[in-house]
Amino acid sequence: MELLIFYPIAGLCVALALGVILNTSPVGSAMCLIGMMLGLAGIFVLQQAHFIAVLQVIIYAGAIMVLFMFVIMLLNLKQAASADWVSRDKNLYITILTSALAIGILYKIVDVTFMADLDSPAELPDTFGTVATVGESLFTDFVLPFEVASLLLLAAMIGAVVLAKPKLD
């Protein structure tokens, strides 16, 4: 029954991921990426990882996409430049490198999947990955990293303002 929900979402994700790489317009690719990230959030919910699902929607589909849009805007990609992906021989080394990386990751995934002892899955508490469980360890065991995160955000905030508004008026 879980598969009945999983397969449509997974199929949609794969279709949208193909949309990301096959789209000639960068903005179209970005829109497909948003859809794919929302689909991934659905898969995370199926895996009982609710907090990751929320992160996926708010951080990836929201914040990271904004940054992607900005890169697209600031780079000023021309339609023609983005469409000549067919002749990519000048980027041969990059192609080989990224393909090798992708194959390596895929190999690891397949390896782990088939080596896993599926008959006796590791025992996890029912609440593993829910918002409450993640929060409990975040606010008790990892208080210091949590507070340091706020300092990091503060530094980023100040840095952004200093970069964008260099002169005090």
Binding site: A63, I64, V66, M69, F70, L74, A156, M157, A160, A164
Partner: peptide
């Protein structure tokens, strides 16, 4: 850019 980064 500033608005976007602050939003993030």
């Amino acid at each position: 850019y500033l608005v976007a980064v602050l939003f993030v």
